[in-house]
Simulated scan of single mutants.
Amino acid sequence: MSHPTAGRTGTTTRPPARAKGAAPPRPDVPDAQWNDWRWHMRKRITNVEKARDWLALTPDEEKAIAESAGTYRWSVTPYYASLMDPQDPACPIRQQGVPSLGELAAYSGAEVDPVGDMFYRKTNRVVHKYPDRVIMLITEACPVYCRHCTRKFHTTDVSGTYFRDDEGASYEEDLRYIADHPEIRDVLLTGGDPLSYQDGKLEEIVSGLRAIPSVEIIRIGSRFPVLLPQRITDGLCEMLARYHPVWLNTHFNHPKEITPEAAAAVDRLLRHGVPVGNQTVLLRGINDDVPTMRTLMTELLRIRVRPYYLYHCDNVTGVSHFMTSIEKGWEIMAGLQGHITGFGVPQYVLTTKIGKIPLAQPYFTPVDGGLRLRNHHGQEMVVDASVHPLTEDDLR
């Protein structure tokens, strides 16, 4: 199948629509380039002209790209573009990467910082929200600026920033804060995407954290395994392995994102001792149905990625059009519990200024003398308190 290549000379034609389940097309570029993450970063799609080499843009998409210019950054890697259906604007990959008019609409209750990053910020980069762990917001850069990003204002609003000082400012204050708070045992590097940095720069940060005795765990939040898995090189993995324990959490949101390249990237991390977890965002029109979510979770297990969270989409300015109801989330969780293996069922949570709040409906109800239990088929039974005591008094 022919496929245009962004940035190449000569005439290009848009690729035909793919049959359902067909493998994504590969651009006609040498393997050495396609497998080089730096090539993809240089060739990112950032305007209508480049996008037309990959997609049959609709008038609404072109209007959204034009009207969001100067407000929201836009960037898509050739790899991620190759997963998009070039003819279908409802493609779940395309919706995550191409601006839409929904981003420019006003929604009740929308905020630029609904999770309270700025409220809990202690230094230029450190956000200390939970007692024993912090996040370090180390960059605004991403390979693809996901249209549903919780930090959309900070990473894609061209006038927005979460840095008190410059992103390139010294890390001395940040590391000193963590060292001065020995209760901090877990540090999550996020942003933006930390893997946007070259290995050397990233190692400076990781080694600085590992030198702090009270820091037990270093975590990296990165969507590179999804958006540009070529970034997960042996060299990167070898560097991370020098600073264990290091964990990585990523964001697969749809089964189409689980490709051979993504599976290979996960395998490289695992072979170097880096566990990989997944934090899916519940997104209207993308994964808000039980069959899609069930397939996603089972496919994640197949490539040895542990489902961790199912995030309810935050009411973020420029993101609200992706929100579903909480009832929809309950429906999906009911379609997972008992239908796939237990460790493949993520925890459904809503992120708020007071922390992550579990939203899953309970499968039990206290009743007089015991518990009413309900299974995934809706069958119910009552267990007497003499069999399974409900309170400490029941044990006496």
Rank of each mutant, 00 (worst) to 15 (best):
G168Y: 04
T233F: 05
K20A: 13
A69G: 00
G109K: 06
N249K: 01
G329S: 07
A179Q: 14
T71R: 11
T341G: 13
P245W: 07
Y162A: 08
W37D: 09
E216V: 02
L282V: 09
H40A: 10
Q96C: 08
T352M: 06
S320I: 04
I258A: 12
R210D: 09
L189A: 13
Q337K: 13
D53W: 09
R374P: 02
T298A: 09
N249M: 12
R185A: 13
Y120F: 12
I220F: 04
T365E: 11
F163Y: 06
W74A: 03
K356N: 06
D384H: 11
P59D: 14
V382P: 00
A51E: 06
V126E: 03
R185Y: 01
A66K: 12
L57V: 04
N375G: 11
D28Y: 02
I340V: 14
Y171E: 01
T58F: 08
R242N: 15
W74H: 06
E203R: 14
P245H: 10
G318C: 08
L83H: 02
C313E: 00
P59I: 09
K43Q: 14
I286F: 06
F224E: 12
P275N: 10
P291A: 02
P89N: 04
Y107T: 03
D165R: 15
V276F: 07
Y177T: 04
I258Q: 08
G318F: 05
H377I: 02
D85P: 10
I232Q: 09
V382Q: 04
V274G: 14
T150I: 02
I258L: 14
E173Q: 15
G338N: 09
C237D: 05
E103M: 15
G378D: 06
G277Y: 12
I217R: 07
A264F: 06
Q347D: 12
P4C: 01
P358N: 05
A241V: 00
V187R: 07
A360E: 15
P194K: 01
L373F: 03
R176H: 12
G21E: 04
Q279S: 09
H377G: 03
S386M: 08
R304S: 15
P358T: 09
V276G: 15
R268P: 10
L395W: 11
G329C: 04
P225L: 04
A64T: 08
G70S: 03
T150W: 00
E140V: 08
P229Y: 02
P225I: 01
D199Q: 10
M239R: 13
T295H: 05
R14I: 12
Y162H: 09
N287F: 07
E238K: 14
L209I: 05
E261L: 12
L296K: 09
C149M: 03
T161I: 10
H3K: 13
Q33D: 13
P366Y: 02
R374S: 01
P389R: 12
